[in-house]
Amino acid sequence: MRERAAKTAAAMAAGSSSVQAPPKKKTPPAQFFREVRAEGRKITWTSRKETWITSVMVGIMVALAAVFFLVVDFGIGRAMQFILSLTNAG
């Protein structure tokens, strides 16, 4: 723990421009594709039913948001018409 703190302090004191990252190891293409395939096996895909339900819920929320903003826009428009009619009446 102290070594890590000392390295961090030394790196910060030296400035970030002079600190270089260690060179990355080259991975052979065959090993890379094996690792990609292994990671791909860990993926859990949603079922068709879950995807359908989620899509319907998103559609409902979009419709509700559209109605909400329609009502708010209508209300603000009416309020602005009222305020502008007061200034033109006098």
Rank of each mutant, 00 (worst) to 15 (best):
S85Q: 13
R4G: 05
S17L: 14
F32T: 02
E3Q: 15
A13S: 14
G77I: 03
K24Q: 15
T54G: 13
Q81A: 07
M61A: 13
G90L: 10
T27C: 13
A9T: 07
F69N: 09
R41L: 10
T87K: 01
I43L: 01
V71E: 03
M80D: 07
S55I: 06
L64C: 11
R41N: 08
A11E: 14
K42D: 00
L86V: 14
M80R: 06
G90M: 10
M57G: 03
V72C: 09
K25P: 00
R48Y: 00
T87M: 05
S18G: 12
T27L: 15
Q20H: 14
T54K: 13
G59A: 09
R78A: 14
E3M: 13
W45F: 12
A21R: 10
F74L: 12
I53A: 10
V58D: 02
A79C: 10
M57K: 14
Q81Y: 02
K25V: 14
S85M: 11
F33N: 01
M12I: 13
Q20A: 15
E50M: 09
A10S: 09
E50F: 02
T27R: 08
A10H: 03
A66N: 06
S16H: 11
P29A: 13
E3P: 02
A14D: 11
L64F: 04
V71F: 10
V58T: 06
M61G: 06
L64Q: 05
M80Q: 10
L84R: 07
L70P: 00
I43G: 03
K26D: 07
A89F: 02
W52V: 13
W52I: 11
T27A: 10
W45K: 13
A9Y: 00
E50H: 00
A30G: 13
I53R: 03
S18A: 15
S85H: 08
R48I: 00
R48F: 03
G15Q: 03
P28D: 11
V58I: 08
G40S: 10
F68R: 08
A38T: 05
A38R: 09
R78P: 02
V67S: 06
R37A: 07
I76Y: 05
V56G: 01
V62L: 09
V72L: 11
A9N: 04
V19P: 03
A89S: 15
G90A: 15
A38F: 04
T8A: 05
R34D: 04
E39G: 05
G15R: 01
E35Q: 15
V62Y: 03
A65D: 05
P22Q: 13
